[in-house]
Design a protein around this nucleic acid. Structure first.
Ligand SMILES: [Mn+2]
Ligand SMILES: [Mn+2]
Ligand SMILES: [Zn+2]
Ligand SMILES: [Zn+2]
Lengths: 140, 140
DNA sequence: TCTAAAACTGTAATAATTACAAAAATACAA
DNA sequence: TTGTATTTTTGTAATTATTACAGTTTTAGA
C-alpha cells in the first residue's frame, strides 16, 4: 500500500508530477478509503481550499486513472467512484447507507478467472446488499 | 430460460402488459444475447418499425429492470448494457471487438459471496481482456 | 529575474438520460 | 359497434455528468 506520508514520491514513481492539488486529492483517497465520486472529493476538499475547481478533480482522476494510480468503479449507473487501492479485491455496496466496503478475494476467485482462450486484463467484482450496521438498526 | 415463442406469457407472469414494442424488444434481447445498450437496441429495431422512439426503449428497459426481466451491466463508464439473462453469471468484455461474453460461475464463486454479517442482494462480476478471436487475428 | 511549460480555473459544449405533455393504441362496457 | 377510460408511445425540452477549451496562474529552471 502507498504511504500517506510519501505521496509525492509515489506520484513521481508513477510518472505524475506531484502538484499540491494532486497530492491533496490522493491523500484524501488514501485516508478516507471511501470510494468517493468526483463530487464527494470536490465537496470534501473545497472546504480546505475554496479555490479548487471541479474540473481539476475530473482532470486529476483521469490522469490518475491513465497512470494506474486509481481504479474506477461503476457500481451504480451514473455514479463513478474511485479507489486508490488498485489491488484485486471485491466491493460490497450497502443499498441502505450507500457505503462501499472492500473485501479480499481468496484463491477460489482465481479459479474461474483462469479462463482458457481469453486474455484477462481487468476484472471487476462487486456485490450489493445491506451491511451489518444497517441490518442491526433495522431490527428495532 | 425464457422461451422466445412465449414472450407474452412470460411478460404477463412478470406483471408486465405485453405490448408490441415490449415483446419485440425482449425478443431482440433473448435472440441476440449481445448485452446491448439502449442505442444498439434502438438502431437495430427501428429498421423493422421506423416509428419506434428512443424514449420507448428507455422506458421499456426501466420497466423491465424494475420487474426483474433484465439486469443492467455497467461494464464501461457511460455504457449501460442490458441482459435478459438474470441468472448469476460472469461477463467478459473483449477490449478489442467490444463483444461481451457470458461465462458460468462454479461453486467457488459462492464461497466468497458467503460473507457473514452482510445480506447480499446483487452481485456483479465481470472481466475485461481480449477474446480468442481477437487474439488469433492479431497473431498475424 | 525571465521565460516556457505545466497546472488550474471557469464557462461553454456535449451526450446520456429523464420529464412531460400530447397523440395513438388498446380494453372493454354499454 | 361505439364511446370512453386507461395505457402506451412519441417527440421535444430539461436535466445532469462529463469534457472541451481558452484564459490565468503557478512552477521550474536557465
Ligand atoms: Mn476498494
Ligand atoms: Mn450475460
Ligand atoms: Zn449500511
Ligand atoms: Zn474480440
Amino acid at each position: 500500500m502507498v504511504d500517506v506520508n510519501n505521496i509525492d514520491v509515489y506520484l513521481k514513481s508513477q510518472g505524475i508530477r506531484p502538484s499540491f492539488h494532486r497530492m491533496k486529492i490522493l491523500e484524501y483517497l488514501l485516508r478516507e478509503r471511501n470510494h468517493p465520486t468526483v463530487d464527494t472529493i470536490f465537496d470534501s476538499l473545497r472546504g480546505m481550499f475554496p479555490t479548487l475547481s471541479r474540473t481539476t478533480v475530473y482532470n486529476t482522476m483521469k490522469l490518475f486513472l491513465s497512470h494506474g494510480v486509481v481504479q474506477a468503479l461503476t457500481i451504480e449507473e451514473k455514479e463513478v467512484r474511485y479507489d486508490a487501492d488498485t489491488s484485486l479485491h471485491g466491493h460490497f455496496k450497502c443499498v441502505v447507507c450507500g457505503a462501499v466496503y472492500d473485501f479480499g478475494l481468496e484463491e477460489e476467485i482465481k479459479t474461474f478467472m483462469n479462463l482458457k482462450d481469453f486474455q484477462i486484463n481487468e476484472h471487476y467484482i462487486f456485490l450489493k446488499g445491506v451491511c451489518k450496521t444497517c441490518l442491526e438498526s433495522r431490527e428495532v
